[in-house]
């Protein structure tokens, strides 16, 4: 009996660890979605496809398909491209944003389709490999098998998310961002430019998406659908966090990572999307405002 329990714990610990690592990446994706939603009330369905396109650009720039640059320069170029794309998308949909969030949301689907088509046109439907230049390293710690990849992901996630939270909490830009997500009308009356804050969130989201895509690709391979599929978990993470809470989406991402890992291992690897559907519906009904929302009722 105790032996069985020990075995379960022995499995559980590494499962939770690796779930947390992928969960950090889901959180990176979810944070981008939530940034955009918080500022402009638009759900960016093109997030995954644009990030996937960027991952392909990095592959293209560094492998000789398009250019033959070093990895770092390729990433930099792809980042610039993605910022330009985010700028373009926002420029097109900004008149819609102020009229109807739902219409703007539908139009992001259009950009997703275009990004996917562009990836297919330029790079084809082949599967490619895109590795990170990280040292091969692994160690065992308390029964955990920790690799250099794990530590890289953790470090990048902590730095990126830490920077983001610092910017949002302490800088003028972050205060403006929070003001707009609280009350756009009042923020505009106070002289804030809604469009520039929206643009800020779109650009930050695009960069977060590329970082997430870069880090997730080494675990599988790169195809037209990989990153888009990864972003679906990010959607679930954002929903669990309430779609309007940055810390919530971080917690949601890690939770989704761990739960998916446990579900795949203990229940079934074939019903993961169904499991996500159930999770999303449950989360929306049980925690309509996200898991970190305070219990209802007003203080007297």
């Amino acid at each position: 009996m105790s032996d069985g329990l020990g075995n379960i714990l022995l499995d559980l610990f590494p499962l939770m660890w690796s779930g947390m690592i992928t969960g950090c990446l889901y959180a990176l994706g979810a944070l981008g979605l939530v940034m955009i939603f918080k500022s402009s009330q638009v759900v960016n369905f093109s997030h995954g496809n644009v990030a996937g396109f960027a991952a392909f650009l990095i592959y293209g720039f560094s492998s000789g398909v398009l250019l033959n640059l070093s990895w770092g320069v390729a990433v930099l170029l792809a980042m610039i491209a993605v910022v330009a794309i985010a700028f373009l998308i926002y420029a097109v949909i900004s008149p819609l944003v102020f009229e109807s969030e739902l219409t703007a949301t539908i139009s992001t689907l259009g950009f997703g389709l275009i990004a996917q088509g562009a990836t297919l046109l330029i790079f084809g439907a082949d599967i490619v490999n895109l590795d990170l230049p990280i040292p091969r390293f692994s160690m065992s710690f308390l029964g955990l098998f920790i690799t250099g990849y794990d530590l890289t992901v953790l470090a990048v996630a902590v730095v990126t998310i830490g920077t983001l939270f610092f910017v949002v909490d302490y800088t003028k830009l972050g205060i403006a961002f929070r003001a707009i997500s609280e009350n756009p009308f009042a923020a505009e009356v106070c002289g804030l430019n809604l469009r520039s804050i929206h643009l800020f969130s779109w650009i930050v989201a695009a960069i977060l998406g590329v970082v997430g895509a870069l880090l997730i690709v080494p675990t599988t391979f790169l195809s037209v659908t990989t990153v888009a599929a990864f972003m679906l978990q990010a959607f679930a993470a954002a929903v669990i966090g309430g779609f309007a809470s940055l810390p919530g989406s971080l917690v949601g991402g890690i939770l989704i990572g761990i739960l998916m890992n446990l579900f795949t291992f203990y229940v079934s690897a074939e019903f993961t999307s169904t499991f996500l559907l159930v999770l999303i519906l449950l989360a929306l009904n049980v925690f309509p405002n996200g898991i970190l929302a305070r219990a209802g009722g007003s203080r007297v």
Binding site: L96, I106, S107, G110, G112, L113, I114, G117, L120
Partner: peptide
């Protein structure tokens, strides 16, 4: 997909 995306955007705009 490119054409569908453009059509979607075009019609919305």
């Amino acid at each position: 997909p490119v054409l569908y995306g453009l059509a979607l955007l075009g019609m919305i705009l």
